[in-house]
Amino acid sequence: MAVRIQEQDFDISRELAALRAGDKRVGAVASFVGVVRDLNDAAQVSTLTLEHYPGMTEKALTRIVDDARRRWDIYDALVIHRIGALQPSDQIVLVAVTSAHRGESFAACQFIMDYLKTRAPFWKKERTPEGERWVEARASDEDAAARW
């Protein structure tokens, strides 16, 4: 199980290969990649800057993954979240989970992502033609986390 906060990009195929390397029990790998969109709330976004709360971020993500391990029979999980300045089409986040069968890893992956969106201390600031603005939280993200 690993949680990483980093500025640099990540290589999905390398990360997925490393996650299941040497574990012959694995029959399923589910993953989610979040990507920067060029349009948010009707404004063109040129740069998205991500900041976090060092110390709490790692603790919160580790707790979310531990929670997923208690709920589903999964073998391993990986969360990578980027910080710093990102451009449209850049990768922001990777969540990957391994299990024997797809049901557990699909569900755990979605759960980790839903909880990350509402409990992990990251904030986005957008640069648009009108200037910089902090991204507002969405009620739909709270609803997504509440269903678990």
Binding site: V93, R119, W134, V135
Partner: peptide
């Protein structure tokens, strides 16, 4: 103290 989070 911080606003609601917006990561992911």
């Amino acid at each position: 103290l911080f606003p609601p989070v917006t990561g992911g």
